[in-house]
């Protein structure tokens, strides 16, 4: 009977009408806590247990430094390729009509749907001496399998959809009036692309490239097949962490994993900021 009075003085706030809030939020938090949060905390605690001096010693050991360098270099190569190839794909898929376009669009999802180990297996065989591409490239003096190019290739394959699928919707949403205005003002096609289209898709493109780069740094399944995994030559950071585990050197594994985790979280932050910028751009462009 007293509940009737609540609506009078209190500030007007949408009351919760829909049921199930406690149940759904409770389930979500429980799942996140047990599946994601506690395991990640276990890693961070392990890192704290190692102590700064030993942590630094592990991370700055020559083999670890080489692994980080190889991982970063290959990820940069892969991301540069994907930045260009992904942009081309997004542009062609949005702007042109041609037979087979739907198949081409569907193929862009293959790297996400295909298990990374399968991708790695196929790329390795394809680029090795008895594959389809290996002999052709060998004739040109290019070695892919068991080199850093192979690592970059595996990284590029597994991360290309990030660029395509981030740029595509922005390009689709662009107001044609902007470009028409530029045409009216006498701009040439290339000028319109660089001055009108490119600035509009830039935030989304950068966000896609950042995500692709982050994915490349953490990729494992596709790379272990093609890399040959030689320390100091073709050993990536994720694999070094894995090897440390197999040697029961849990400190070594945890330290390297923490560095990769820090990279991933920083890149996630950058990508989120870019996406935020992109969404503001899209609203302004409407």
């Amino acid at each position: 009977m007293t509940a009737v009075a609540t609506n009078t003085g209190a500030p007007v706030r949408a009351k919760r009408v829909l049921p199930g809030f406690t149940l759904s939020l409770g389930t979500t938090l429980l799942y996140m806590t047990f599946i994601v949060l506690i395991p990640v905390i276990a890693l961070i605690l392990k890192g704290a247990e190692i102590g700064p001096a030993r942590f630094w010693a592990i991370v700055s050991s020559p083999r670890a430094v080489a692994a980080f360098q190889i991982t970063l270099t290959a990820a940069v190569i892969a991301t540069v390729f994907n930045a260009l190839y992904g942009l081309l794909m997004a542009w062609v898929l949005v702007r042109y009509e041609f037979p087979g376009k739907r198949v081409l669009d569907a193929l862009m999802d293959v790297p996400f749907a295909l298990p990374t180990a399968v991708a790695g297996l196929s790329l390795t065989a394809l680029f090795s001496a008895n594959g389809w591409f290996g002999p052709v490239l060998a004739a040109l003096g290019v070695e892919v399998v068991y080199t850093i190019w192979g690592i970059a290739l595996a990284m590029a394959f597994t991360s290309v959809p990030f660029v395509v699928r981030t740029v595509q919707p922005v390009l689709e949403d662009m107001d044609p009036a902007l470009e028409q205005a530029a045409v009216t003002l006498g701009a040439r096609p290339w000028t319109i692309f660089t001055r009108v289209v490119f600035p509009a898709i830039l935030p989304a493109w950068l966000a896609g490239c950042t995500t692709a780069f982050a994915r490349s740094l953490g990729e494992f399944g596709a790379i272990v097949f093609i890399a040959g995994n030689l320390p100091f030559r073709t050993e990536i950071a994720a694999l070094l962490a894995y090897i440390r585990l197999e040697e029961f050197d849990y400190n070594g594994a945890a330290a390297i994993a923490l560095v990769l985790l820090a990279f991933a979280l920083v890149l996630l932050l950058i990508s989120n900021l870019l996406q935020f910028w992109a969404s503001r751009y899209r609203e302004a462009g409407r």
Binding site: I38, V40, T211, F220, A238, A254, L265, L268
Partner: peptide
Amino acid sequence: VTMIEIPFSISPIIAGICYLLL
């Protein structure tokens, strides 16, 4: 929402190491 997306950014190898350490 960001937390839910986090597993996407974490390399599965790191996830495995987390579980092993736990």
